[in-house]
């Protein structure tokens, strides 16, 4: 049997395999990892009739891939410019949230994301990958994941599972809306900060800096003054935790964060706002808004229902 595969002609800036994430390894220092924007990961899979297969996550510039094999179906999600060049040189401008048939020797060029960071590529049936510690997710810092935890690289051959007969055209209307503010819950060291600092934190604008990646997001605004202790005993942190290091500039912990940390925590981003938070490009202005736990739970329930509705629309 002839194999079906992608050849990587250009890997893109930060292209990795991701899935729902790696559970139950925080206690040995492994972050959750997984797709940064969970909703877009789920939608790309659903558009090609997959459930939780690994997708290729790319940031800013995506990969240029050449396909060899029996025709198959792909989909791209996010806010992404991409094109497909057919074997006869015919160029198709790609639309996100719509699936496409790829044929032997077609080229898929994921050119760039649009005023957002991450996008996802799924292929019907999924890629042929090895699960590492129960997950396809890549944690490149510790080289954990398929292909020895490496990001995509030039000339890499990525096999795909037996092409299914699934060829149904699927499409949804979905717009990645921007959020006006990031909703947070008070964290355990909220009272370490001066009244003025808390006021600034909740009312002033912050700017997303370039020091942002899958591990964390550094933001800049008014200095958040700590009036108690600048360091605490190292303890566990979770995705979305906002730490204030001694310099007073907040760091938001993202999916590949260190599992323990010694900086005081002022807040934690609510689960429902995480997908939108990670899509903010450097220089975006953001504001925080405080909510309580029951509110956060209610907002999450809405987020979950919206996601389920989108998935059901595709099915």
């Amino acid at each position: 049997m002839k194999s079906n595969f992608f050849e990587v002609l250009r890997p893109g800036i930060n292209s990795t395999f991701q899935d729902l994430g790696r559970e139950n390894f925080y206690h040995i220092g492994l972050p959750f990892s997984g797709a940064m924007d969970n909703r877009n990961y789920l939608l790309s899979n659903t558009l090609v009739n997959n459930k939780y297969e690994a997708a290729i996550e790319f940031a800013y510039q995506g990969p240029l891939l050449k396909y060899y094999g029996k025709s198959t179906v792909i989909a791209v999600t996010g806010d992404v410019n991409f094109s497909i060049t057919k074997k006869n040189k015919k160029l198709i401008n790609g639309e996100c949230y719509k699936n496409y048939v790829l044929e032997n020797e077609d080229e898929l060029d994921i050119i760039s994301t649009n005023k957002s960071v991450y996008g996802y590529l799924s292929v019907s049936g999924g890629f042929v990958l090895e699960k590492i510690l129960n997950s396809y997710s890549t944690f490149s810092r510790a080289k954990i994941g398929p292909f020895k935890g490496e990001k995509l690289f030039v000339n890499q051959k990525i096999l795909i599972n037996k092409t299914s007969d699934f060829k149904t055209q699927k499409k949804i209307k979905y717009v990645n809306t921007k959020i006006e503010y990031i909703r947070i819950i008070k964290a355990t060291n909220f009272d370490f900060f001066s009244k003025k600092a808390v006021e600034n934190f909740l009312n002033k604008e912050f700017i997303v800096t370039k020091l942002t990646d899958r591990m964390g997001m550094r933001i800049k605004g008014p200095i958040i003054e700590n009036i108690k202790e600048k360091n605490i005993r190292s303890e566990g942190i979770v995705k979305g935790t906002i730490q204030i290091p001694p310099d007073g500039d907040p760091i938001i912990m993202l999916s590949d964060h260190g599992t323990i940390g010694g900086y005081p925590k002022i807040g934690v981003v609510i689960s429902a706002d995480y997908d939108k938070l990670v899509q903010l490009v450097p220089n975006t202005k953001i504001k925080f808004k405080l909510v309580n736990l029951p509110e956060a739970e209610k907002i999450y329930e809405i987020y979950r229902l919206e996601t389920d509705n989108l998935i059901n629309q595709i099915k």
Partner: peptide, 15 residues
Amino acid sequence: EIINLTPSYNKLIVS
């Protein structure tokens, strides 16, 4: 329902 446990010197976080 538990997806992570993080013990440290004097804390345990249950995610």
